[in-house]
Design a protein around this nucleic acid. Structure first.
Lengths: 164, 164
DNA sequence: CCAGATTTCTTTAAGTTTCAAGCAATTGGC
DNA sequence: GCCAATTGCTTGAAACTTAAAGAAATCTGG
């Protein structure tokens, strides 16, 4: 028996199982690693992952950033950042001041103590990550970087297409 | 001038920036896609991602699962599942009963209505994912699957090494 | 049998997260 | 100058999340 390929295309919906499996695997990897990093941060430094992430963003920009910048970079909501920053200012890790040119804007920076503490954590964190990805060869790493860059572009395109 | 390679190795800490960049890119991709899926689920079906994920787990096992099974599969805490299930039973999507052989165990399943609703959502969800990964060739997909499988194994090994 | 260990689930407290609504400041068009 | 739209942030409600502690049931090695 032979199958007319056109008929087949009409009768069977397109097969997208591979992409779905890929997404689930991507999600599994990230969840796994995120959980591991979260545990180690808590155990070793008694700090939560969101706090570490926020400090990581600020460490890259010594002159400070606005809350909106942070929320875009971290890809989380504005309200989320407000609460997170509040607690980090409270604990002395962050310095927050109202912009002189635009009084709606809050500029936040790491305090000296905050920066010192972050650097200490970041150094270990980098080793953890190296450990977690330890089985990958340099070639694997390069190849993953390339494919994930492509994935990111593709996802951004799809997101823009829905919300222009 | 020449550099003694041994001296270099001692003086410079090992370079793990590539792995760190890889991790950040992996995280970016996942966050991006997760956010997009979350938005679409809310817009189109007024359902949250955790609820969808839980229903997806249950759809694969018609005879039902225990709460522990769910929490292992979803890689979230026990207490998390308790609350999630509570709300889904409340809304009629899930059926929950105490096991007859072990009265500590709660077995949950999709109700008929829950299953119907999930199937409807899942069909669209699959198309979204195909759209989001649309720029990747079948070869890219295969290669990513392979490299992520390797990543998963590596991460699991690192996690086990820390907590035996 | 039975006391201790383990497993399964719930509860609690603290924190994170989103969305939506709202307020305040600024910008842009007229 | 003035008003409307936009931008930046905060607030509030509901949901989600974790870690830790506790309750109940079961299992296990004397």
């Amino acid at each position: 028996m032979t199958l007319d390929s056109e008929t087949k295309a009409v009768e069977l919906p397109e097969h997208h199982g591979d992409e779905l499996r890929l997404w689930l695997r991507l999600l599994t990897c990230t969840t796994l690693i995120e959980g591991e990093v979260r545990s180690r941060l808590r155990e070793r430094f008694d700090v939560t992952l969101p706090r570490f992430d926020l400090m990581a963003q600020l460490d890259k920009v010594p002159e400070g950033m606005t809350l909106s910048d942070v929320s875009k970079r971290m890809m989380v909501s504005n309200g989320n950042v407000t609460g997170l920053v509040e607690r980090l200012v409270e604990s002395g890790h962050l310095d927050r001041r109202t912009s002189e040119v635009d009084r709606r804007v809050q500029v936040i920076r790491l305090t000296k103590a905050g920066r010192a503490e972050f650097r200490k954590m970041a150094a270990e964190h980098e080793l953890w990550i190296a450990d977690i990805f330890g089985d990958l060869t340099p070639k694997d790493v390069r190849e993953l970087m390339r494919l994930l860059a492509k994935t990111k572009t593709s996802a951004q395109k799809a997101a823009r297409a829905r919300t222009p």
